[in-house]
Design a protein around this nucleic acid. Sequence first.
DNA 1: CGCTGCTTTGAAGCCCTTCAAACCAGGTGG
DNA 2: CCACCTGGTTTGAAGGGCTTCAAAGCAGCG
Lengths: 239, 239
Amino acid sequence: MIGKYLMKLRARDPISAEEEAAIRESIADTVRYPADHCFIRAGQRLNHSTLLLDGLMCRYKDMSDGQRQITEIHVPGDFADLHSFTLKHLDHNIMTLTPCTIARAPHERIRKLCEDFPRVARILWFSTNLDACIHREWEVSLGRRNALERTAHLLCELHVRLGLVGLADDTGYALALTQAELAECLGLTSVHVNRVLRELREAGLVEFRNGRVVLLNLAGLRRVAEFDPAFLYLGMREA
Amino acid sequence: MIGKYLMKLRARDPISAEEEAAIRESIADTVRYPADHCFIRAGQRLNHSTLLLDGLMCRYKDMSDGQRQITEIHVPGDFADLHSFTLKHLDHNIMTLTPCTIARAPHERIRKLCEDFPRVARILWFSTNLDACIHREWEVSLGRRNALERTAHLLCELHVRLGLVGLADDTGYALALTQAELAECLGLTSVHVNRVLRELREAGLVEFRNGRVVLLNLAGLRRVAEFDPAFLYLGMREA
DNA sequence: CGCTGCTTTGAAGCCCTTCAAACCAGGTGG
DNA sequence: CCACCTGGTTTGAAGGGCTTCAAAGCAGCG
């Protein structure tokens, strides 16, 4: 059930059988949400964290004029709000983009898990730091990359992150996002995202149609984005 | 010596005398760096974390064309690279913006501190999550706010963060940044930052001259930025 | 078979960049 | 003590990338 999560953890750190069992025990129940469902609001007091098992969700902030900025996309195997364990309420909303299955881990159980297994605590801490790495890379995209590079970069990022949990291969991956949602990630308008996607398609790099990203030329796409996956810390970190 | 750090922690969580002593013991030594000195490079293996005692520093990423994006500014009392405790190497560089005094905490001591004091561990974890909150707010600025709002927002953020450690008051604060460095935070050119600062000055909101931010109309500045300090988690989080 | 939501395209305009040059203050050496 | 240099600030003019506004096209679905 939480196999994708363990798969992702083990891509970066070894996990013993005992640790795995303890992690599994921290899950209380699983729930299904429909698409476009905002299930965590900024400021709301939280006492559990949400592990995404299936589907796509995002963190976002609303502007007063109705615009929104998505600050991170979550793929299966991500803890969408593990940071609420220390923050207790969030500075942003979280919503589903597609129908989702999630598992819930009460903060009380996470606390016990961390105290019993300090190494697991560091791994959980690491995973929230990884969210910050993704945020930083988005800051670079939003601040310094033009629309084409920025879009290409996001598609590369999602390719790697979905690949880690077996949901992407060399040919591409399923991505049930609208162009408007992409625009909300990229700090662009949906009109311009549409033009950029056309440009990427006509350049023979990538095609995004009917909820699927088809990689026509991955090396070329990465070159356009100047994509370096190092920010995702794929290898083992300890000696 | 690490008084500003404790001051900042206590703005958000109570710290007992015993915990304070343990935190103090995790510091090995203090060092001084000159201005504009890059002392941590992306990818470099790290075995200690850097607590900023005095001065300003920043995290930044370089682009291939020589541009850079600053992803966060650090003020005294900030752990500039506490995340290296779990990441072991960083995805970005860290450099001083002014001459700085820092204290160094070996990862080995942080590990012991966390295992002996799980509550302190959660507070340290919280503080890296707070960096992520700041990153998210910058994503919103870079993605959705125009140059005027974005600049105003950053000046408001620094006002609050410096105020927390006694380095800002109602009249303003010292900020030894160049307009080019501001531009690197804001995803703008220094030319445009200059024009925006003039606009803020002529609107009677804020004046930035000779390394000092003079607040002429804080309420007005916050209104322009639509600044809400909630993302900095100033209050106590626990019941 | 006509909604509804998403995609696509065109035309006009604006915010910010680029390029260029003048200005200014502080520090250094003749 | 001033001439010079250097790094930062300021301003102008032109251009471009992205937005805005508008409307047509298209697919899935009741």
